[in-house]
Write a protein that binds this DNA or RNA. Structure first.
Length: 570
RNA sequence: CGGGACGUAGCGCAGCUUGGUAGCGCACUUGAUUUGGGAUCAAGGGGUCGCAGGUUCGAAUCCUGUCGUCCCGACCA
C-alpha cells in the first residue's frame, strides 16, 4: 500500500473527547472516528487489526470444535418474552418496532436466538455435543458509553454457544474454551488473567472473565501471588477471621455532631474504622433490607443481589430509611424492627463496636450482637475483598489489580434450553434439555486493550500478529531519484514476498514520516537514506525495542520475512 | 439515572464578565526554497458561533427551552 493512497488520517492534536491512551491513539492514528456516543466507524487501519483478531479467534474456535454461523442482529420480542428477559434486561435492550408496530430488539447477545436455532433441528443425543459461534455487531444501549471502543453501544463480539447432553459434557467444553481463550489472548500479545466472576444477567453459574491487566481497566480484581487464584473483587470470597475475644463493655450513647460518615465518626472518636459497624438500607425490588458491614469494608452489590435474588438493587431513599426508624447518617441496628436484617459474616464475630443511634448527632459505643443488643436475620458473605487479605485457596497474600474485561465464559446449564424447550432425546428415549454454555470475546475491546498495554509517548506499539501492516518503508528524500527507486524496489520485493507493507511515498519531510510511523505503530520500519544507500545498506528500526540495525539492500527482503516469522511464532 | 462541565472552521482553542456583525495555532490549496525526527516565506479557501424562542436599534456574548458530547458516581457480558 502506498501512503499516498492509504486512508489513515493522522491527527497532531488529540480530540478533546478522548480520555484514555487507547482512545486517544486510535483517534490520532486515524483508526476510528465517532459517529454518535458509543458508536464508531472503523477506518481501514483499525479494521485490518480487527480482522486479524477475528481470524485468530476463528482459528482457535474452530480448533476447539466450534462452527461459525451468522444470526440476525434484529430479534423478535417473542423470543425475549419467552426467556423472560424482555422485562429483565431493562433499558439496555435496544428495542425497535417495524412498520406494523411489532416489537423487536437489536441483539445484545444471542442465547435466545441460538437456542431457537438449535431446537429447530437437533433431536437426538447423537447430534451432541455442538458448539456454534458467530462474530457480529452487538447493541447495548449503555447508560454511559465511554473510553472509545472500550464501552460502546455498538460493538463487535464473538459469541459461542455450546450444547452438551449433561453437566460432565459441559465441564469438558467449558475447559476446552478456557484453553482456547488463553490461546487467543496470548496470540494477541496481551498480558491477561482469567478470574472467577459473577454470571450476571445472563444467568447460570460458573463463570470466568478474562482480564487484560491495565490501570485504566474498569474492573477491580484480586489475585494470589503464590497460587493461581484470581477473582473479581465483587465475587472473591475470603472466610471471616475470628476476632480476639473481649469482655462486653457497657453500651453508651455519645454525641457525635456532624459525623455522618464512618470515617467522620472514627476520626471523631479516635478509633479505627474497623471498629465501626455501618448500617445501610437497600431497596431490593419492592422490599427494603437492612445491611450491616464492618466499617472499613465495601458492600459487594453483586453478592447482595445474588443473595436476595432481586432484579433491581439500590440504596434506599432517606424517607424509606426513616419509615423503619433510621436516621440517615446515624443509622444503627439497635431497636430496629419490621425489616430483614442481613449482616456480613464478620459482624457477628466482632466485639464492642460503634453503630449509629438512629438519632441525629448520636452514636452508640460498645454494641454487641453476641450479647443480644440487636437481631440479625441472616448472616452471609456480602462484602468486597481487598488487596492484602489472605488467599482463600493457599493462604498467600492477595494482590490488587485493575483489568479490562476482554472475554467471559459462562456455564448456562439448562436455563435457556428449559425455558425455550430445546430438548434432545437420549438413548433411553427420554427428552432432556440440552446443557448449555456461552463464551464471549469483545473484539474491539481486545484491540483497545492491546493498545492500552502497548504504547509509548510516540504512539502505538503493535505486536506483529495484530499490526494493521507489518512494515513501513520510508524513502527519506522524495527528490533523490536513485533513493526513491531503491525504496520502491524494496517495497515491490516485500509485496512479492507477501509482506504486509506500506511505502511512505508522500511528499513530506522525513520527520513527519517518522512521527506517523511511530504513531501508527508499524512493528518494523525500513529507512532508505542516501548515506546508507551509498554503503549498500538500509536502516531497520524495531518499533517495540527501538533498536536499529543496518541490513544490506540485497538481503532486506529475506531478513524481513525471517524477522516477521520469528515475531509471529513468539 | 444523580453530580459536574462543555458545544465558536477538519482538530486544538481565544472572544462571552462589560452586546456593535468572528479570531489564533495546526491542518487544507497554490508557488518558491527546503529534505534523517512534526521546515520557511508569500498568496489563498473555509465558520447560519449546536438548535429554537425571547430581550434589544443590534446577540457568539444576556434570558428561557431544547438537543448533543465528555467526565465522576451508580449500573453493566
Amino acid at each position: 500500500m502506498r501512503a499516498t493512497n492509504l486512508y489513515a488520517p493522522t491527527l497532531r492534536e488529540v480530540p478533546a473527547e478522548a480520555e484514555i491512551e487507547s482512545h486517544k491513539l486510535m483517534l490520532r492514528a486515524g483508526m476510528i472516528r465517532k459517529v454518535a456516543s458509543g458508536m464508531y466507524t472503523y477506518l481501514p487501519m483499525s479494521w485490518r487489526t480487527m480482522r486479524k483478531i477475528m481470524n485468530i479467534i476463528r482459528e482457535e474456535m474452530d480448533a476447539a470444535g466450534g462452527q461459525e454461523l451468522l444470526m440476525p442482529i434484529v430479534q423478535p420480542a417473542e423470543w425475549w418474552q419467552a426467556s423472560g428477559r424482555w422485562d429483565v434486561y431493562g433499558a439496555e435492550l435496544w428495542r425497535v418496532k417495524d412498520r406494523h408496530d411489532r416489537d423487536f430488539c437489536l441483539g445484545p447477545t444471542h442465547e435466545e436466538a441460538i437456542t431457537m436455532t438449535f431446537k429447530q433441528d437437533v433431536r437426538s443425543y447423537k447430534q451432541l455435543p455442538l458448539s456454534l459461534y458467530q462474530i457480529q455487531t452487538k447493541f447495548r444501549d449503555e447508560r454511559r458509553p465511554r473510553f472509545g471502543l472500550m464501552r460502546g453501544r455498538e460493538f463487535m463480539m464473538k459469541d459461542m454457544y455450546s450444547f452438551d447432553r449433561d453437566e460432565a459434557g459441559l465441564d469438558k467444553t467449558y475447559q476446552r474454551m478456557h484453553e482456547a481463550y488463553t490461546n487467543v489472548f496470548k496470540r494477541c500479545g496481551l498480558k491477561f488473567r482469567p478470574v472467577e466472576a459473577d454470571s450476571g444477567a445472563i444467568g447460570g453459574s460458573g463463570s470466568h472473565e478474562f482480564m487484560a491487566i491495565a490501570d485504566t481497566g474498569e474492573s477491580a480484581i484480586v489475585y494470589c501471588d503464590t497460587c493461581d487464584y484470581a477473582a473479581s473483587v465483587e465475587i472473591a470470597s475470603v472466610p471471616a477471621g475470628a476476632c480476639e475475644k473481649e469482655a462486653f463493655g457497657e453500651t453508651q450513647k455519645v454525641a457525635t455532631p456532624n459525623c455522618a460518615s464512618v470515617e467522620d465518626v472514627a476520626n471523631f472518636l479516635g478509633l479505627p474504622t474497623s471498629t465501626v459497624v455501618k448500617t445501610m438500607y437497600y431497596q431490593a425490588d419492592d422490599k427494603t433490607v437492612l445491611v450491616l458491614l464492618r466499617g472499613d469494608r465495601h458492600v459487594s452489590e453483586v453478592k447482595l443481589q445474588n443473595l436476595l435474588g432481586c432484579l433491581e438493587l439500590s440504596m434506599a431513599s432517606d424517607e424509606t430509611v426513616e419509615k423503619f426508624g433510621g436516621k440517615a447518617g446515624y443509622l444503627g441496628p439497635v431497636g430496629i424492627k419490621g425489616i430483614e436484617i442481613i449482616a456480613d459474616c464478620e459482624v457477628p464475630l466482632m466485639y464492642n463496636y460503634v453503630t449509629g443511634a438512629n438519632e441525629e448527632g448520636y452514636h452508640l459505643l460498645n454494641v454487641n450482637y453476641q450479647r443480644g443488643d440487636f437481631v440479625i436475620d441472616k448472616v452471609a458473605d456480602i462484602r468486597e475483598v481487598t488487596a492484602g487479605e489472605k488467599c482463600p485457596h493457599c493462604g498467600g497474600v492477595l494482590q490488587g489489580a485493575r483489568g479490562i474485561e476482554i472475554g467471559q465464559i459462562f456455564k448456562l446449564h439448562d436455563k435457556y434450553s428449559r425455558l425455550l424447550e430445546a430438548n434432545y432425546t437420549d438413548e433411553e428415549g427420554v427428552e432432556r434439555p440440552a446443557v448449555m454454555g456461552c463464551y464471549g470475546i469483545g473484539v474491539g475491546r481486545t484491540m483497545a486493550a492491546v493498545i492500552e498495554q502497548s504504547n509509548d509517548e510516540y504512539g502505538i506499539i503493535w505486536p506483529m500478529a495484530v499490526a494493521p501492516y507489518q512494515v513501513v518503508v520510508i524513502p527519506v528524500n522524495d527528490k533523490d531519484e536513485a533513493l526513491t527507486a531503491a525504496a520502491k524496489k524494496i517495497y515491490d520485493e516485500l509485496l512479492r514476498a507477501k509482506v504486509e507493507v506500506v511505502i511512505d511515498d508522500r511528499k513530506e519531510r522525513p520527520g513527519v514520516k517518522f512521527n506517523d510511523a511511530d504513531l501508527i505503530g508499524y512493528p518494523l520500519r525500513i529507512v532508505v537514506g542516501s548515506k546508507s544507500l551509498a554503503k549498500g545498506v538500509v536502516e531497520v528500526k524495531i518499533r517495540a525495542t527501538g533498536e536499529t540495525m543496518e541490513i544490506p539492500v540485497e538481503e532486506i527482503t529475506e531478513w524481513t520475512k525471517k524477522r516477521i516469522g520469528e515475531e509471529l511464532t513468539k
